[in-house]
Design a protein around this nucleic acid. Sequence first.
DNA 1: ACCAACTGTATATACCGTAAACACAACTGC
DNA 2: GCAGTTGTGTTTACGGTATATACAGTTGGT
Lengths: 246, 246
Amino acid sequence: MAARNKEQDKPRDPRASLALLWGEQEQPTRGPKPKLSPQRIAAAAVELADGEGLDAVSMSKVAGGFGVSAMALYRYVPGKGELVELMVEAVLAEGPDLSGVPGGDWRAGVREWARRCARVYAAHPWLLGATAMRRHVMGPQQLRWLDAALAALEPTGLGAAQRHQVFLLLVGLVRNLAQQVSDYDEEQDREWNRLTGELLARHADRFPALTKAIAEGAFEPAGLDPLEFGLDRILDGVEALIAGRE
Amino acid sequence: MAARNKEQDKPRDPRASLALLWGEQEQPTRGPKPKLSPQRIAAAAVELADGEGLDAVSMSKVAGGFGVSAMALYRYVPGKGELVELMVEAVLAEGPDLSGVPGGDWRAGVREWARRCARVYAAHPWLLGATAMRRHVMGPQQLRWLDAALAALEPTGLGAAQRHQVFLLLVGLVRNLAQQVSDYDEEQDREWNRLTGELLARHADRFPALTKAIAEGAFEPAGLDPLEFGLDRILDGVEALIAGRE
DNA sequence: ACCAACTGTATATACCGTAAACACAACTGC
DNA sequence: GCAGTTGTGTTTACGGTATATACAGTTGGT
């Protein structure tokens, strides 16, 4: 175990962050040619995180990949927090063109959006931890995804505030799912189930509903795709909302 | 900024964790009287986390609160990961008796469960980060909440696997909500909105749906309670599922 | 040519979690 | 009562982390 960053405790100038994320900073003409760029650094960090997890992303390791010292990175990035923001933007940029689905079928559109979003999280499990950091600033790519979701929701005829709420619900669904998946570990899971099963059997009276549910196979691998299940529930809920307004 | 723990990279014996969480370890009779106990340590850590955030919980600070050295804690707790697990159990234990709501109204029961769960997260914002750690082991208090949720869902007549899925949806809702709330910071939020607003105005063509939604006031403080809104959607979705099965 | 601006490095600080070796205290068996 | 064993708390040390600061080297504009 190493130490946990207090990623959020230094003020982190939002102006600087935004300039970085939107690529809106005039680059100088005077000094030596820079070897690196915020984007190249972020890309290297992403590669590292994809391979070894977010915790493996340290200034020193990232810098090492370029053969420069850790402090060199601070010429391009104000701090690690901002680097992570850049990483998020980088992987969010990978996503395809998010222009809506052809027809006026909002359910299909929203579903497709959620699937694509889930795919990004699946490809980069560390995204979850990276965006869980407090007070992060939205960059253009995050806004792009937000925009796409809102666009997909326009045909619902819901008000703006409600569309926003539904969007939050959808991101939440995808993120929770990603959480569960990233937590999963075949071997360890089996071990856990075994041990907890024993304990539970010994205290069955304290957990009647749980005991019954387990007996009925609630925790078997199950053919249910959690994403589709969640989407179905939420979309049905939204449909009910639309119906109720008329 | 300090360093980020790789909380999960040391094996962390599940047997030991479970014994700790269930309080099933025979205590010795030989040596000197211990001054501390896993529970007292966890309680102190919770207090610290409540006051200064999860990142403020370091072995050294917790130990300092008892006037002992950091290493003393390792006599009671295998490591920091396990300490955090104990913290989670501690705050989850605070929750009231979760016995279901009287009538056969499953919606009311589930709603009440979610509200209580949300209240715990609101009281201890660090819970989110604490349970986000990978591979955590469920203790009895976590099982108690799970049991209560499953019990509340029994009157729906849904299958065990589906009840489980709905449970996951509900926890997800509460957690995402907690995330949003804990991210919120009046001052900083205003600043962010201002700066991002400028940038967005300059790129309005790239984000048409978002621009429109903002114009319609989608991001105003809004009278919508996100928890109730989310619950309404999900419960309606579940109701549709029940109806569809008949 | 000079100087200002810029890049990268080396060094140092202040944390973090925790392994290892140790001194002491208290109970068990004699 | 005494010895031995076992558990407690401390000290020290190690390898990590982010990053502040002071410096050396490079480059372009003047």
